[in-house]
Design a protein around this nucleic acid. Structure first.
Lengths: 131, 131
DNA sequence: GAGACTTGGTCTATATTGGAGACCAGGCCG
DNA sequence: CGGCCTGGTCTCCAATATAGACCAAGTCTC
């Protein structure tokens, strides 16, 4: 079947394709959540991000932010004050991706009930079949 | 700050919120890729999926499909023929999510070049700073 | 001037996860 | 009877995530 991709040659389904690599790095809980938070709340410092994306460890926060920075989605600005102040914000490329992630977050918030219900049903049918 | 979520009380940023749990499970490479593949190509059997989503191991394929099935996004149909034939396809809920994932795949395919370029630049600036 | 406290991390130890590949059940073919 | 097919599962090992201690620089307290 015809692929509908815009960019010739690039295909996230192909393991060897550079775009798969990019996809794999971004298709991760913390990356998407950080993108969403920076998009929604604007620039934030390290500790603010840790508070807005509840549950992220400092290590993952550092690591994920570095990845996003490396990918040209996020800008890291160090203000050499004291105590140190490091601010992160989205570059245009980051915003353009974040815009596409927002609908997913909304979908999840709207449909979590259905999902949870399906899970309960599934677990009842499978897990508790013959305890 | 006002959250723009449609569903009262649900917020993917809150670690304890059920929607975060749902988000975390779906915001993963294989789940998204499977959703995309089933959306684009329609129903497929186990081995077809393994071929269309290149690089996925049988273990992860099984595990991810089970998760999606449990969440009410995917339907698993066993045809008790010989050799066995197991077909997976998207339920309406799955399609509605997949539709929102498609733009991300397109973004990645369109913008991978920029990302790759940013990476090269970043690595040149940081990695090779003072070898 | 000694401690304690701040921010933005890093490092270590442990638990969880992912991937590679062996193995398995059931039915057909030869 | 042995081997092949599918759609898994199981085991082992490597990689990754998480928790939490630790650190540097400077400022504030006492």
């Amino acid at each position: 079947m015809a692929t509908e991709q815009q960019h010739p040659d690039y295909d996230v389904f192909a393991a060897f394709c550079p775009s798969r690599n990019v996809f794999a790095e971004l298709a991760d809980k913390w990356s998407l959540l950080l993108l969403l938070s920076l998009h929604k709340l604007g620039e934030q410092r390290f500790s603010e991000l840790q508070r807005s994306v509840v549950g992220v460890s400092r290590k993952m926060l550092t690591q994920t932010l570095r990845g996003l920075e490396r990918d040209g989605l996020v800008r890291r600005t160090v203000h050499p004050e004291t105590p140190p102040r490091v601010v992160y914000d989205l570059l245009p490329l980051g915003h353009s991706l974040a815009e596409r992630v927002v609908p997913i977050a909304h979908w999840v918030e709207e449909n979590s009930d259905s999902v949870l219900e399906a899970r309960t049903e599934f677990d009842a049918a499978h897990g508790a079949a013959c305890a």
